[in-house]
């Protein structure tokens, strides 16, 4: 059954690309310069691979993404744990936290460039800002959603506050923490592109921006799809980590 579902997904994607190709190359429904068909995108992609610049840009973006994402995990998980488990922290730090979440963080990108320059720093920071909130919020919900009955049972068998946290709340929240981390991966991809639009001359986001400005839409779309592929691979890795770290949860969803 699982194999069957995988084939269905592959078939979906293949059908989508086939329709797209047919609509542009076959039926000429749109100008291929503006809506390039998959064949043109593939040609553009292999062309970029051949001229050798792509790996360098991809490496620059990936490094920033990993740095910003790890920072988001290191900051987001403890923040979520604190917000979720302490009424005091939630009352005092909650309002600024939600205000920051409500802010259009993308709007800060030009400011970050002014403050931090054209290097990697503003890019890492915007990736961090994109990824940290889903991680912190899911962690918080995970802690708050712990079945009170489990906490009562732990108290009956002698657990104090710290043991309740370590032996019950943290474990119960683990699946949602990993869900947050998976969402954080997707947001980090957005951060890559946004962070490289202004100020700098490196990275996949920068390349997308440049090729679009040159009306080389086939290349721009090829790069976008490359980011999608990278995001999916990373999210699959996090899912795998969840299956290993929280098998009782992953198998429960059938």
């Amino acid at each position: 059954m699982r194999d069957l579902k995988r084939w269905a997904v592959a078939l979906e994607v293949a059908a989508l690309f086939a329709l797209w190709e047919l609509a542009i190359s076959g039926l000429k429904l749109a100008n291929p310069s503006f809506v390039p068909p998959p064949s043109a995108i593939w040609t553009a992609f292999t062309g970029m691979l051949a001229d050798g610049s792509l790996p360098e840009h991809a490496w620059f973006s990936t490094q920033n993404a990993v740095a910003g994402f790890l920072l988001a995990v290191v900051v987001g998980v403890p923040c979520g744990l604190a917000l979720g488990s302490s009424r005091l922290v939630s009352d005092v730090a909650g309002p600024p936290f939600w205000t920051a979440y409500a802010m259009p963080r993308i709007a800060f990108q030009p400011l970050l460039v002014l403050w931090l320059g054209f290097g990697a720093a503003p890019k890492i920071l915007i990736i961090f800002l994109m990824a940290v909130f889903p991680i912190a919020i899911n962690t918080m919900d995970g802690i708050r959603g712990v079945d009170p009955s489990l906490v009562r049972a732990a108290r009956v068998y002698g657990a104090g506050r710290i043991q309740v946290f370590l032996k019950v709340q943290l474990w119960a929240a683990l699946p949602l923490i990993l869900t947050g981390i998976r969402m954080g991966v997707a947001r980090a991809m957005v951060g890559i592109v946004v962070g490289e639009f202004i100020g700098g001359s490196q990275g996949l986001g920068y390349l997308i921006f440049r090729r679009s400005a040159d009306f080389d839409l086939a290349s721009a779309l090829a790069l976008t799809l490359l980011l999608v592929v990278i995001a999916n691979v990373l999210m699959a890795l996090v899912s795998l980590a969840r299956r290993i770290a929280a098998p009782w949860y992953a198998e429960g969803v059938s």
């Binding site: 009562r152 049972a153 732990a154 002698g158 032996k167 019950v168 119960a172 683990l174 009782w248």
Partner: peptide
Amino acid sequence: PGPDRAVVFQDYALLPWRTVADNVRFGLEM
């Protein structure tokens, strides 16, 4: 709560991430 009193709950209140043996262990590990 104290070790002289144990509770059996209507909803079992077993820790889903622990095996039966580890859930039983929970009754004495503190």
